[in-house]
Design a protein around this nucleic acid. Structure first.
Lengths: 311, 311
DNA sequence: TGAAAGGTTGCCATTTTATGAAACTTTGAT
DNA sequence: ATCAAAGTTTCATAAAATGGCAACCTTTCA
């Protein structure tokens, strides 16, 4: 139909198809997504191939051999997440006009802070759930740089990251701190303690594992002149490396605690080599906060004993 | 149908409706948009009221008496523009994957620079049209702060603004400069020249008109201690104020030239009171540039005699 | 070799949507 | 009063989206 073509334009987007595609990609296959989507497999199959025709490219390889996204498919998936985030943003706006709190609130945080006794994110969530019971939550853990980018472009509503270099378009609210201490694993030369004459400089001969993104950790590692031989993007991975007995690395005390208790990890010069990281909530400044984000931030600050004096 | 409700969720967005709404709002009425949309008025009417039902609010008042957006309608329109920009972004992505250049390129610039002989934006457009004939252009003039915000959030692909405070998420490419000189209009005490003993400080007794947003102009105005009695958001408005003969104000020399030629405006202390503004192209850093933006920037830089050394 | 699992396709009934024509309503102007 | 313009509503129709069922194709794995 000519008019429609005019209105829709070539390759206009269809939410339905994109949502299906995203779900399938997340589930890793049609069959798996069947339940999630609550529609028949045949329909899903058709949706996906429709989308492929519309976009003029192969999005994923699928078959009994398994499911995988094509290179183009990955790009499209990324663009899709972006677009669907914008749709969420629109619905947020509309909800805000109604003064409603519904839809989804997307929170991203850097991993392994749940055992920190100073972190009260759980309390904030609890408080938020009370005031906004209709809101679905979506939590992810990502490296701080990804979180920052995500908050800026709207993929996340709020992030919790170690404060490092502050971005001008983000607004930071201080939450809690973490004590970072240098650890080694069983089998490491330092495991049985360092002789008192082994000065700190000598430590830099050992292999060191640190974060692969710009962070206090990276700065400290470089300043102490460590031999950075492994880069990770989360603390879980760091734990594994340290446990191998081949690497030194900084971990928050509370993360290392269980390993220390099991004596598979020990601090190195606990009192001399350490630094403190401050964790902060970040939200974007520009498109002014929506009610959900505003409210969640309030809960977060309250849970961490702030009076919301400053944002 | 239950499944659909699950998939679409309450109030899911329909592009078609939003596009229609935007067009109607831009055209200022159903009848006027009929031609633009190329669909019948009855259909448009139904679309709008559908949207109102879906969103649960009145978007606009319309009738024989005239057309106007409601307060909520304005907010929704804004959110709509945002969402549709995201859709454009998606299509850009897809086009980029195909290595195509199609769709719309959105450029925003600060007004009244077309008469500047150092500005070669027209040449850039000409060059761009040659390499990307399929791309539709959308130009707007806005105050620099609006342009910056728009480029950051994707409403514009590229902006041209006076360089002032640089934002960390934007990338600046220097283009050309403007000489800003203080002018007064016919009837102003300064029109027939200032007596040599009237020192510059005395000037600050006169009323001054300047930009209402953070800019070099504002800084200069404040530093010279002018009596800022009128704020404008574009130079056109400034021209009118200066012509009134009641205000002093800075204008680019090339903008004032025709008025000076007609002797309705004269520079005040042309050689003593002046400053230079540099105009730069801004694009956002984060979601990496799409081909169209990249190409346009290239054209811009080339037109202004740069070798694209730095961005 | 023969399930089992993952996907695709054709077929079909059902529902939804899109749309223009024509009749109707309201308002402002002559 | 009358008319024109702007919108709304009703109606009928054509097109499309939907989704289930069943048959069919492939690959994997036992």
């Amino acid at each position: 139909m000519v008019k429609k073509a005019l209105l829709q334009g070539f390759g206009d987007v269809d939410f339905r198809l994109l949502r299906v595609f995203r779900t399938v990609a997340r589930c890793g296959g049609l069959a798996a997504s069947e339940f999630e989507l609550n529609i028949g497999r045949s329909t899903i199959s058709r949706h996906i191939s429709d989308l492929e025709v519309r976009l003029g490219m192969t999005l994923c390889y699928r078959g009994p051999a398994g499911f995988s996204l094509s290179g183009e498919g990955e790009k499209v998936l990324e663009a899709t997440e972006m677009l669907l985030a914008a749709v969420d943003g629109f619905q947020n706006e509309v909800d805000d006009i109604h003064r409603n709190m519904r839809g989804t609130f997307k929170l991203a945080f850097f991993d392994l802070s749940s055992t920190n006794p100073k972190a009260h994110v759980h309390a904030a969530i609890s408080g938020f759930e009370t005031v906004a019971p209709e809101v679905n939550l979506e939590l992810s853990t990502e490296p701080p740089n990804v979180i920052e980018a995500g908050v800026i472009n709207g993929r996340y509503d709020l992030g919790i990251v170690p404060v490092h270099r502050q971005s001008a378009v983000l607004s930071y609210a201080d939450l809690y701190s973490e004590e970072m201490i240098l650890y080694c694993g069983q089998g490491h030369p330092c495991f049985d303690g360092v002789s008192s004459d082994l000065d700190l400089k000598r430590l830099s001969a050992f292999k060191y594992a640190g974060f692969g993104f710009n962070s206090p950790n990276m700065v400290v590692g470089q300043r102490m002149n460590f031999r950075i031989s492994a880069r990770v993007h989360n603390e879980e991975a760091l734990c594994v490396l340290i446990q191998s007995g081949r690497y030194l690395g900084f971990l928050p005390d509370h993360v290392a605690a269980p390993y220390v208790a099991a004596d598979t990890m020990r601090p190195v010069e606990r009192d001399k080599i350490r630094y403190t990281t401050r964790l902060a909530a970040i939200v974007r400044k520009r498109p002014e906060l929506n009610r959900k984000t505003d409210e969640f931030l309030r809960c977060l600050l309250q849970a961490h004993g702030h009076d919301r004096a400053e944002v």
